[in-house]
Design a binder for these strands. Structure first.
Lengths: 163, 163
DNA sequence: CCTGCAAATGTTATAATGTTTCAAATTTTG
DNA sequence: CAAAATTTGAAACATTATAACATTTGCAGG
């Protein structure tokens, strides 16, 4: 499956998107899930930047497509994409971002730059391990982890005001 | 400052609340911050259970006090309380909970029981360390961490349906 | 082919959460 | 006490998310 791109650095973003879509088709096929045109389009829109996109931003893009959609359409597509591990919801931003580890079983950790808005998804096994340890130390059965770090990405530490 | 209570287990909750309020008064005094009646009342309401309370729940409680408040009143009080480390916002629930480590510098980690709704706040230094390592490994300057674990608390693993 | 079921989408309305703005009151400070 | 700053009140509004029900589409079995 696709190698991880570094959002903070210039890269061929069209390739990013088309790779993500290709991966998604494969994953859905394997899971007998239907990546319908709407779902695929929503995924594409979300992938079009490395910044999280709000549900209503997606809605606006769909509208400018000429597709006159209502909120449930978008939320349903997003639910589907989340359930199949193709996008993540960033709780601290009420927004969604393409999963860069789709297909791999993982617990995402998100580095959110407050200056440029880009988000990098990491898998940090050591973090997951410590989280599990801390939870089970309290007798707690952990199911889902929300781990979001806000701060400054490398580029914005040196060149403030970047996009 | 107050010792930590275990929300999953029965305890003298009134003592919890009054201890939290006493602590809060001390902390605000030290910080030259004004714990006004509204702010104190909001803090008290939030502490009245170990379940997170939504802003509009707080609002409803204030109303039933006879205090006819509007949303900004509550959000302002909550902002104040957060800024002074007296409550935390749980992003995955859009709700607020009393900080059980007020006054100590800490990064909270929250164990959220999906069955009973109680939340336990932990400080897990090993987790923080690994998070920092993971972030700085990417050249990222971490500022604020959101770490929320949903799952089942010890009691709800054995006795489902509890409150 | 067609028929009937399940999944997906459309549509309208509404709920839940959070903010902006400006005015009035209160507290602090000089 | 008077000026400045902080806090609160109040109305309107913005954003995010869901409920409920109708309609359409895809698909398996007769």
């Amino acid at each position: 499956m696709s190698a991880r791109a570094i959002p903070y650095r210039p890269h061929n973003h069209d390739a990013c998107v088309s790779q993500a879509l290709t991966d998604a088709r494969t994953i859905c096929q394997r899971q007998n899930a239907r990546l319908t045109p709407i779902r695929e389009r929503v995924l594409e829109l979300i992938w079009q930047s490395h910044k999280p996109l709000g549900a209503y931003d997606v809605l606006a893009e769909l509208s400018s497509d000429g597709h006159n959609a209502a909120p449930p359409t978008v939320y349903r597509a997003l639910d589907f994409l989340q359930q199949h591990g193709l996008v993540h919801r960033i709780a601290s931003l009420n927004a969604f971002i393409g999963c860069t580890h789709a297909g791999e079983s993982h617990t995402g950790m998100f580095l959110i730059c407050r200056a440029c808005g880009n988000v990098l998804e990491l898998t940090a096994p050591e973090v997951s391990t410590e989280v599990r340890k801390a939870a089970s130390g309290e007798g707690f059965r952990a199911e889902t982890t929300t781990l979001e770090i806000a701060g400054l990405c490398p580029r914005c530490q040196s060149e403030p005001g970047h996009d």
